[in-house]
Design a binder for these strands. Structure first.
Length: 256
DNA sequence: ATGGTGGCGGAGCCA
């Protein structure tokens, strides 16, 4: 069972890329972020033609999340229960007995800004909610664009992406650590302890060609699923295509 | 310190 996460940065623009990649890679479950589409515009019929059902929560211009799966998507929850706001950044569903939480974590802009404070509030709300969710669903996968680099191995230049810098700051990494401490594990690190792949490269300054990237797109698996992980990786190829998303798909495979 | 690119929407915001 291959479970993937991809920030597509506009599904309107990237639907052909998604279709091509679904055909080539054949994931069983995919969490999408930054669809930037209102729900009535979501291309569920085009995806159904490829064998994927979908659930989605979107808005115009910003944010927007979806889960695609080959099988039924059950017990869907939109947003973070008890933490209401206008951003469409979270959607959850059960697929084949596995609870899938798909997150588009707040970017935070810069340390010390209002957006940064909101990022930490949002992550605290996610923590409180996942604490309950993992009790109710021990077989849990939390995936998405976390907008946090787990540690120095996950940045191209630790001198720039240091402990006071957005996406790498102490508070952000602590918030991610708190999620992991609920009983979750970074699928990529389980499968590739020495891996140095990135999942995001800035559009500017030829960052992809120079491999100036970060690993911020994660697939976390719960204790109950840890022993089932048979692989994990990042799909670099879609980032080489014409007019790509700035993110590459990150995936984990479970033996089931 | 600034601006570099891309999406959306049609100027400026967000990343």
């Amino acid at each position: 069972m291959k479970i993937a996460s991809w920030n597509v940065n506009s599904l309107n623009v990237r639907l052909p890329h998604l279709e091509q990649w679904l055909r080539a890679f054949g994931p069983d479950v995919v969490g999408l972020q930054e669809t930037k589409l209102e729900d009535h515009r979501f291309p569920d019929e085009a995806l159904a033609a490829l064998g994927y059902r979908s659930v989605f929560s979107g808005q115009k211009t910003y944010n927007g999340v979806a889960i695609l799966a080959r099988g039924p998507l059950q017990d869907v929850v939109v947003g973070i229960p008890g933490f209401e706001h206008e951003h469409r950044r979270a959607i959850t569903a059960t697929v084949d007995g596995i609870r899938i939480v798909n997150l588009y974590v707040v970017n935070g802009q810069a340390v010390g800004t209002d957006k940064y404070a909101f990022k930490l509030e949002w992550l605290a709300a996610v923590h409180a909610w996942l604490a309950q969710e993992i009790r109710d669903h021990p077989e849990l996968v939390v995936l998405g664009d976390f907008n946090i680099t787990p540690d120095a191995r996950d940045v191209h230049d630790p001198a720039v992406w240091h402990d006071g810098h957005i996406l790498s700051s102490v508070a952000e990494r602590s918030a991610l650590r708190a999620l992991l401490d609920l009983g979750l594990h970074d699928g990529y690190r389980l499968a590739q302890p020495e891996g140095t792949e990135f999942s995001w490269w800035d559009y500017r300054q030829a960052a992809f060609r120079r491999n100036l990237g970060l690993r911020i797109d994660l697939t976390l698996v719960s204790d109950a699923l840890r022993g089932s992980v048979v692989g994990a990786g990042i799909e670099r190829e879609p980032r080489t295509w014409e007019r790509p998303s700035d993110h590459a798909p990150a995936w984990v495979e479970l033996a089931r």
